[in-house]
Nucleic acid binder design. Structure first.
Lengths: 212, 212, 212, 212
DNA sequence: CATGAATGAGGATTCATTCAT
DNA sequence: CATGAATGAATCCTCATTCAT
């Protein structure tokens, strides 16, 4: 039944057709949301027939989940690294800027919006996304803060809270206007300003005081 | 649209029927999202016939937009008042807690999710919501901060940024897990903790120092 | 909500539209079978839109079951009466002829076929039909035989079996060729011949012998 | 249809592949009916690819017809033999029991239901089945009766009718409840009872009387 | 103005069939 | 010849919208 170590052309997890479908579906889903996207339009966008969609994915839900999974990986979030040799302030600023750049990337934002939208009806999708993307990057940052606490650079009781606070501070005036389509993605300069302010606030609270 | 100069309560902007429809539609839209809500269910929820819906609203979109408009008013956000006589710390804590309570209101998934969901396909709805609800409450808070700056209690360069920072700090670990369905709405205790921490951070940065 | 003792026009159990749909559906279902019939064709045959079908019936299944219910009543089976004053032989012949006429009516036969076809996948439909049509008419005949036994005219141990045997004998060479589309419905003469033979066989076995 | 005078076993009427397909298709068709069976499932059941199905059969209809043709042969009906040396009563009972067993075979809903189901839409299938299976086995039985008439054992005018009557009598209370899914397949004991009764009736009518 | 029956376009999904390999 | 990926027509069903009453 198995043909001479087949050259992988069928509905495998990584065939070209499958990738092609995912690409098309990604476009449509992120543009129109789950309900707004029709399988017909996805098929057209992917350049395959409607039937082919169902050769590779059981149904619309499965296809959507797959996209969102990939999205979470695609999100460079987890790629943000902390150089332990740099001083804290520089590290924070670098992280903050990178973080906001990712968050306000018009490509990724659609995903956030789409996931938020569907989270009520498909809670697993919401949870998955949160855990893979948000909790993951937050965890990395939390561990960095813990190292700094151990090193005596920072004085923090709840590092998870502190990490969360910093990322929130960096969003400040940037994220909501962007996600609600009021403004375009913020410029690097604007990001730098807000992140600087966030860093100051953060350090004003958590930097170890000389004789505290 | 109004026929024969009808003397009775017609499809005016404020007839009882209209309010009744809006109430029913609000429930359904916030519970199910835009696509999940059907005009039939809205009619049932409002206790009117499907046809009547179209007497008062041109189509589903219009009805939805109207709800979202009203949402800005309905949202108690703008109702949050700042008592100028209270000390800053108490005011901040009260505002922060009220703000998070509204944001993480478990009833109807909170309007914010519904709006975010549709913002891609109906950008004006997103914009409107941002401006009416978010910008509005933020503006109020900003003006309060400006008053405090003038009063010498706080030392802030960019009050809009500071206002934004505070609201973000209050969200910290609370909002995202909630909106992504990872946790239930936060308890009052948890809110108090996070808001306390936010207030400390805020004041550590912006409180006027004795000899600064 | 109730309008002045409404003149019954809506999706009631007996509106004209509903009857219209049933009529159209009946035609298509009996002609094409359950799977062969499409809701589109039923709508066309009934002269209504596809959507209207779903105003009156939850789904294809419900519509089909309704038809089959009606079919069982439509079947005059239960209308066959036994005149207790007539002699047994005449009664048997009359009943037998009427029974075969009904069984080999091109209109009713489609129903039998359609029900048999679907009985595997929708056993309730099969059961219902059997009980309403077959068991019902058989029961009536069984009771007639029991009366004759009590009257001393017939000598039967198992009247239900005997009743069944007689109806089967009447079918003899008539029913199967007809239901398998090999021949048209049998003529009255042919029916009379077969029913006569059946009656003779039946009486040869079950008629009370003078000194038995 | 045959390419390049293929030397190997091609789509002949009797290649192993062909038989394999028919076996798989038979299972699925008899289990699910014509419309319920999908070519995909048939391919799976036969252990071949969907494409191969079309190498051996023009389309679903052809495959189905072929199965039904074969069914006539597969059906052991024609295998029922009459031992001329046995006495009539024993022969009738043996034949009757075998006949009912075939008719009420619980495996695969019995072919008869499947054929009846499709007879409206595919009359030739119905006709074929009747002629090959029913008429055939009935013909054999008819000829047996004719032999007995010639031998003086039985006294029958219309042997075809008599044959038909006997098979019908044997069905009595057994067949319809089974085919309409009201009861399971009858037990051997129940079959024996009904067949005994049928035999008695048959002989009461057709056995040669000493001085008639 | 209020109704709700009727509509028909559109959605997700299935499946017989084809065809390049 | 055998395969199974690809197709697209067809299916059931939903729902926003209209309109006669």
């Amino acid at each position: 039944m198995v043909a001479h170590a087949a050259p992988v052309a069928g509905p495998d997890d990584d065939s070209a057709k499958r990738r092609q479908i995912i690409k098309g579906a990604r476009t449509v889903f992120l543009e129109q949301g789950f309900d707004g996207a029709s399988m017909g339009e996805i098929a057209r966008s992917a350049g395959v027939s409607k039937g082919t969609l169902y050769v590779y994915f059981a149904d619309k839900n499965s296809l959507f989940c797959e996209i969102m999974e990939q999205e979470s990986l695609a999100q460079g979030m987890s790629a943000i690294e902390f150089a332990p040799t740099l001083d804290v302030e520089t590290s924070l600023k670098a992280f903050g800027a990178a973080y906001i750049k990712l968050l306000c990337d018009p490509r990724g934002t659609s995903a956030i919006r789409t996931v938020m939208a569907i989270a009520e009806r498909m809670p697993e999708v919401g949870r998955h996304y949160y855990e893979r993307v948000i909790a993951n990057s937050l965890g990395k940052f939390t561990r960095y803060l813990e190292q700094q606490v151990q090193a005596g650079t920072l004085q923090i009781e709840d590092c998870h809270l502190a990490a969360s606070q910093f990322t929130k501070l960096c969003q400040a005036t940037l994220f909501l206007p962007f996600i609600f389509q009021v403004t375009d993605a913020p410029s690097s300069e604007r990001i730098a300003e807000v992140v600087d302010s966030a860093t100051q606030m953060f350090l004003a609270t958590y930097r170890t005081r000389p004789h505290d």
